[in-house]
Design a protein around this nucleic acid. Structure first.
Lengths: 350, 350
DNA sequence: CTGAAAGCGCTTACAG
DNA sequence: CTGAAAGCGCTTACAG
């Protein structure tokens, strides 16, 4: 299978020029006769020559490649960010190499990425400090961190970060529900101290308070970002003596579970209960009913982080070290105006 | 940020030995005094030295890294295969570098992977020939293809392939439904000529025929693997004069859509209608009701492909060039025995 | 407009 | 048990 590799020297010999000249042609450098350029290109085609990336990296430093480090490939959330990175990298003529941080891998679990294979590194960190700080500090190349899901983002002063505006997004969700007339609004949150989730919970509470509605601890149920937990949490909410007329789930997947639970309970979405999610993962528009949610601009976050990194690589001073990308309300069909009639016959209208 | 890179030479100088000796320590080669080994390791730790992957690749050939080439990172299907690859690679002490085939990227769109960065390449090809044949032929390194979704797998005689047993899986699904007493079984297929889907359709038809049940074209509705299409297809099936009592969707996502449609129609799963999917994506166990489905052993496929590749790299002759991994019936809660009473009051029991 | 030389950081035979 | 030399395939100054 392994057809022998063709090298620069082979092309040079075949074309009757020096290796340098071939190198210049390959790298589109100026200062060559067009005829020379053409002749070399012909030989390149004919021999099927491709640069040996490692050799180029060793010699020149430039790899024309960006690295992306993710905890896993296991969520659409991450895939979407990577898509944004991919597009922007592509436009800039950079290839992409992706690697996952693995529990038991070699030293400084950044895989091969920090070892001279790429010009810069994008680290996507949805979990609190998946990499330890000393690992981060010793990275010998430009780095940008996307979605640093940690309260202590200030602990990472050495790198620029990109994140979405979770708090404002949650306020957007609450304003939407409030404007539809809902006053009794349930929350499906996430256990633990993920800062994303905490900020969204703050948005929920302050949205309520700002509207003059007192908080009711009964209405806040913990989930864990899974559909199952969303289902269970919604069921708890539905069994309240006075159930909510709307539910804000801090992520879409929980919202899917909530919708299942509501239907299962014999009620309809949004006629009887409205549901709003957060994230706007691709599936959000494909479920039934299509989910109203807060779009977390994953694609843009990937793109913005990439642009930042590209600037760093070129030695340009970053405009900002803490980039916050705005979130957006996406109204679909899972939310609607507060129904005139009470949900449980016998319960007085609120 | 870029703390200057520490090289082999730095370590050698600091430890008072030759570069060769340091190299031997790093690569765990025999023939060194333990005391030397220890002294070098200390300096390595102290200086935070890591090998420059490119330099090693250039000099030695060995990169201790496997490449995975995927069309995108955008499906759980692919992620799951990669997980299998990741695990097996990890056990073998190999790092993983992932890249996507991008429409407008450089020559021979295998990204940087074919350019001396890895010892071997795993290509995951769920779409028919995403890479053209000449690209494939000129790959100068060991290659294994996973899930070659094409009728013309024989067009790729140069590489070993790994795939799941789609036909038998579909037969398993039909046998399950048939054994529950269902006779009128709807199919949600996929348009186009994807061989995965075609094999599953064959399993559906031959399952029916083998049970002595004639085919009814009305019962076969085309989807496109999305939840929305599954929803629509199921609705079509439900509106038939004599609707099916069970539905086989050729992928899980379509099955999710079908379940939505059934609930939306005021019927229950599985009491009124049974639904079985195909793939067993992680979500299948998280939806409500948990989905009965055919498990496509994605993880095992990734692992098997990796083992094959590892063997190729070591120059071992592959045991087989066409590895077919068995599928498995996973019974959960979306299927049940044929109900005694008819679905539509007024329709005579079958 | 083109080329000969040096060197990137490592490993592989080969000596001692 | 340890080391000096050559070379992997490229690019970067520097000449001409």
């Amino acid at each position: 299978m392994a057809s022998e590799s063709v090298t620069l020297a082979d092309v040079a010999a075949q074309a009757g020029v020096s290796k340098m000249t071939v190198s210049k042609v390959i790298n589109r450098k100026p200062g060559l006769k067009d005829s020379t350029r053409e002749r070399v290109m012909e030989v390149v085609e004919q021999l099927g020559y491709t640069v040996h990336a490692s050799a180029r990296a060793l010699a020149g430093g430039r790899t024309e490649t960006l690295g992306v480090l993710v905890p896993s490939l296991y969520s659409q959330y991450l895939s979407e960010i990577i898509r944004g990175v991919d597009r922007t990298a592509l436009k800039a003529g950079m290839e992409l190499l992706i690697s996952t941080t693995r529990r038991s891998s070699g030293p400084r679990n950044t895989g091969r990425l920090a070892q001279g294979l790429v010009d810069g590194l994008l680290i996507v960190l949805p979990d609190p400090l998946a990499l330890d700080e000393s690992t981060l500090r010793s990275l010998p190349l430009p780095v940008v961190i996307i979605a640093p899901n940690t309260e202590e983002a200030d602990d990472l002063p050495m790198f620029p970060t990109v994140d979405a505006d979770h708090y404002t997004g949650a306020r957007l969700a609450m304003d939407h529900l409030l404007s539809l007339g809902h006053r009794r609004i349930g929350l499906i949150s996430r256990s633990g101290r993920m800062s994303h989730s905490l900020k969204r919970v703050s948005g929920y509470r302050e949205g309520l308070l700002t509207a003059g509605i007192p908080l009711d601890p009964e209405l806040e149920v913990e989930g864990d970002f899974t559909q199952k937990a969303g289902f269970d949490a919604a069921r708890t909410l539905l069994n309240l003596r006075v159930p909510p007329t709307a539910i804000f789930a801090v992520n879409d997947v929980s919202a899917f579970g909530a919708i299942e639970a509501i239907k299962d309970h014999g009620l309809r979405v949004p006629e009887d209960i409205s549901v709003i999610g957060f994230d706007d993962i691709p599936q959000a528009s494909q479920v039934y009913p299509p989910l109203t949610t807060i779009r977390q601009p994953l694609l843009e976050m990937g793109a913005a982080g990439t642009r930042l990194l590209l600037a760093l690589i070129q030695g340009v001073e970053a405009v900002t070290d803490r980039l916050i990308v705005p979130t957006e309300l996406i109204v679909r069909s899972s939310t609607g105006p507060l129904a005139a009639r009470p949900i449980n016959p016998g319960t007085p209208p609120m």
